[in-house]
């Protein structure tokens, strides 16, 4: 792993809590690493588990799913489904030998701009430790 290695992280954020929390981090001019690329979905429950595998395949070194804290879901239950799905996804990836540091999930509320920064720093650091993802990365661009 080279010193310059800059991990690329794809993050799926729910519109109501985590995306808003990331907005708040911006409004508060909180600085954090630029390695994170956000895809907005309405709810963490919308994140298809195959997105995670797909993101790794399509070049991400790390993937993050972030939603509302349990009980705070704008749609009441979506994050509970997400929690169940991604708990198992993490197990599966780890089991086939993908570094568990690559896939993370977080609860970030709309008021937790500073937590969002911490989460980003944390996942970027973890992805750095894991190094560039090669295991089942696809070899050409998909479009």
């Amino acid at each position: 792993m080279s010193e310059q290695y800059d991990p690329n992280i794809v993050a799926f954020l729910c519109n109501w809590c985590s995306y808003a929390g990331a907005d708040l981090a911006g409004t508060s001019r909180t600085h954090y690493p630029a390695n994170i690329n956000i895809i907005r979905v309405m709810c963490s429950g919308r994140v298809n588990p195959l997105f995670i595998i797909n993101a790794l395949q399509q070049g991400a070194d790390g993937v993050l799913v972030s939603g509302c804290h349990p009980g705070d879901c704008h749609y009441m239950e979506g994050n509970f489904y997400a929690r169940r799905r991604f708990g198992l996804m993490k197990e599966l990836l780890e089991y086939v030998g993908v570094d568990p540091k690559r896939f993370n999930m977080s609860w970030v509320s709309a008021s937790e701009g500073s937590k969002w920064k911490d989460v980003v720093e944390d996942v970027v650091e973890k992805a750095k430790e894991a190094g560039p993802f090669e295991q089942f990365r696809r070899n050409k661009i998909n479009w």
């Binding site: 690329n8 919308r46 997105f51 797909n54 399509q58 696809r138 050409k140 998909n142 479009w143």
Partner: peptide
């Protein structure tokens, strides 16, 4: 996200609309 056959989709957030985003951000 819970549909195994991908038959139920959310308008504006369909799998086929999000996948290209992942591709671009993944940037193989």
């Amino acid at each position: 996200a819970g549909c195994l056959s991908g038959s139920i989709q959310q308008k504006s957030f369909m799998d086929r609309q999000i996948l290209p985003q992942i591709a671009v951000l993944g940037g193989v």
